[in-house]
Every structure is written in structure tokens, then in C-alpha cells.
């Protein structure tokens, strides 16, 4: 399927940003979170540097609570494409017993994702981290730069962002500072799916409807992916045809009931949707400003 003019321009822009990152930084990394945005980002990176392989490693900050299908998809992707994947787990968090079940979403996210990411960036000395975040996901993301500066403590200062004109990016860093780079900034969820369809990009099977064991909890459908999820009194997993709009830690990621079993069906379903993508993300829900607060602390 040929790309629409709109997607062709988005693709060209993202490729430009990826190349700019490689040209301007010493030690970039691509944050690979296994989701559809990461799949698209990885595909664009392959295009940007073809016939060379993407000249940076992939980093997965593993909270150890991802869906099993995500990990399988990750390992299969890396093997198929012959990529250099670095995996980091916040061992200190593990030894403290932090988990989404025991600690709640806020602490788990803070320790296993935000702190884990900071540890990994420090460990390998990455000065630029490419991520698949989009501005249409959430309000504070809507104001984030494509090249988004981070202090030496990995913090974000939303009130003091560098102006970003045309495609001329100010990539200068002082010692210890780093950059987060978002090549998909101008894509919408629908753009991502249309591009997945047009370019035939493999995505994790969890995006497609299939009977899965779920429990209804606090208004969300939570998949019982393994036996670590303690069932509350009266909860009994039932098999329903569900899929996921975004992927994260399975106890924190709500499924939607759906029959959409392929990309075309997903696109059709999304066009009729009346809820936003991050609705399934329990970690965003505390308050409207909560994403901004997490990002200031270093969350992606």
C-alpha cells in the first residue's frame, strides 16, 4: 500500500530527526518499550540508516511485569533484525520488593521505570535517548520539544524549554546533561496504525483481539498473564475477546473488549472510539497533572 502524502511527510520528518540524533550525539540509544510506537520507531530507524544498521543500541528498561507476549515479541524482533539490545532491571527495586501488586502503581512506576531508566542511562553513559512518545498522547506531552533537554539529574524543566524552530535543533549539552529525542512527536495514534498497515510492520500480538483471561477491577479489564496477580475475593478470571491499545505492566494495563483481530479492524475500531488511548493506563490517572510531574522526575 503506498503511503499517503501525509504519512510520507511524517516519515521523512522522523527519519530526519533520527539522523540528526546520530550526527549530533556521541552515544545515542533507542528506548525500546516493545509497543507499537517502538515498532514504528525501530522501522523508521532501519530506513533512516539503510543499508547500515541503526548505529545505536536498543534499551529496554524491564520492570519484570511486562506481558509474556511482549518479552517474546521483543526477543524475536531483536533476533530477526540482528540488533544490539541492552536490558536493564532496577535490581535495587526488586530487592526492596517493589511491584505493581505490592506497592501500587505510583511507587512501582517511580522505582522500576523512572529510576530504572535513569540508572540505565547513567550506566552506559548515553547522551541521547530516542523514544516513541507522541504529543497527542497527553497534554503535557503536547508541549514537549522534539529534542528535549534533561539536566544532569535527568530532570525536565517545562518552563524553560529551548525554542525549537524549523528543523534546526539546539543539541548542545553541558557535562552530564542529556537529551530525550522524540521522532514521532507529530504522529497521532491513527497515523501510527495507518503506517503499521502501509509498511506491514510487525507489532506485538496483544494489540489484536483474542480470547484472554481477564478480571474486572476498578472499572478496568486486567489480564491474568501469570500467577503473580493475586485475585481479590470474588474475582474469577473469565475468558473474553480483548485487546490492548497501549502496552505496559500487565497489572496496570486495561484491556478493551474487542473483536478487532487485524490491523484493518483495529483502525476501523479506533475511528469509532470515544475514549483516548491512555485511558487504559492506570498510572496516568491519579490527576491530570500527573504525567508532567512524572516527566519532571525523569519518566519518559
Amino acid at each position: 500500500m503506498p503511503l499517503t502524502e501525509h504519512l510520507r511527510r511524517l516519515e521523512a520528518e522522523s527519519i530526519f530527526i533520527l539522523r540528526e540524533t546520530v550526527a549530533e550525539f556521541q552515544n545515542p540509544v533507542l528506548l525500546y518499550s516493545i509497543g507499537k510506537d517502538s515498532s514504528v520507531l525501530l522501522h523508521l530507524a532501519r530506513k533512516a540508516f539503510y543499508p547500515a544498521k541503526p548505529p545505536f543500541p536498543l534499551l529496554h528498561v524491564d520492570t519484570t511485569w511486562k506481558f509474556r507476549d511482549m518479552i517474546a515479541f521483543r526477543d524475536e524482533t531483536v533476533a530477526r533484525l540482528g540488533l544490539d539490545l541492552r536490558i536493564h532491571v532496577n535490581q535495587e527495586g526488586i530487592s526492596r520488593g517493589v511491584s505493581p501488586v505490592a506497592s501500587g502503581s505510583a511507587l512501582h512506576t517511580q522505582v522500576m521505570k523512572t529510576e530504572g531508566l535513569r540508572q540505565a542511562l547513567d550506566k552506559w553513559g548515553f547522551d541521547a535517548a530516542l523514544g516513541g512518545a507522541r504529543r497527542d498522547e497527553e497534554k503535557s506531552r503536547a508541549k514537549e520539544r522534539i529534542f528535549s533537554h534533561r539536566t544532569a539529574a535527568q530532570g525536565w524543566d517545562p518552563k524553560n524549554q529551548r525554542p525549537e524552530l524549523w528543523r534546526v535543533f539546539d543539541t548542545r549539552l553541558a557535562r552530564g546533561e542529556s537529551m530525550r529525542v522524540f521522532p514521532l512527536s507529530n504522529w497521532t495514534e491513527l497515523d501510527v496504525w495507518r503506517y503499521v498497515a502501509a509498511e506491514n510492520i510487525p507489532v506485538a500480538p496483544l494489540y489484536f483481539a483474542r480470547p484472554r483471561p481477564v478480571v474486572r477491577r476498578d472499572g478496568a479489564l486486567i489480564m491474568v498473564d501469570d500467577d503473580r496477580l493475586p485475585l481479590r475475593p470474588g474475582e474469577k478470571p473469565e475468558w473474553r475477546s480483548v485487546r490492548f491499545r497501549t502496552l505496559g505492566c500487565y497489572p496496570l494495563t486495561g484491556a478493551i473488549e474487542s473483536e478487532a483481530a487485524d490491523v484493518a479492524a483495529v483502525i476501523a475500531e479506533m475511528r469509532a472510539a470515544t475514549t483516548s488511548e491512555r485511558q487504559g493506563r492506570l498510572i496516568d490517572f491519579d490527576e491530570s497533572g500527573s504525567m508532567e510531574r512524572k516527566k519532571r522526575e525523569g519518566y519518559f
Binding site: 497534554k139 508541549k143 518552563k159 497533572g289 508532567e292 510531574r293
Partner: peptide
């Protein structure tokens, strides 16, 4: 308030 995303703006 839909578009004024930053806390200080709100």
C-alpha cells in the same frame, strides 16, 4: 483547559 497542559498554565 483542554489545551493548557502545564500545571502553571492551568
Amino acid at each position: 483547559l483542554l489545551v493548557d497542559g502545564l500545571e502553571a498554565e492551568r
